[in-house]
Amino acid sequence: MQAKALVEQFGLTVAAGEGGLERLVKGGYCGDLLSEVMANAPIGCAWLTIQVHQNIVAVAVLREMAAIIIAGGNTPDEGTRTRADQEGIPVLLTELDSFSMAGKLFKAGVVNEPG
């Protein structure tokens, strides 16, 4: 599934990184501690977080993520949007909390490969 399919299916708002909407979503991850996400998020995942500052983009690039989904109605800083545009990392917004959004993704078939 491409990141743009998540946008269409779940009515997410594209806040930045539109150029990366064709990235393939290969799994999902929830986390707000950046070191924990950096070490454990699956490659190619959609990352659900409530962090909004621009360093989330660096984590997404280095972890080769498909998209960042900012949950809970939070909105990204301007610097986050600029950096996401530069790097082509979609930053998607939902009013849902991380748990509820993760449940929807899981139901839609976004699952992590074992190991």
Partner: peptide, 16 residues
């Protein structure tokens, strides 16, 4: 509060 400083940086470096 920004999600840094969880005390995982050096352990991550050691592990990887």
């Amino acid at each position: 509060e920004m999600g840094f400083g969880a005390g995982m940086g050096l352990p991550n470096m050691e592990n990887h």
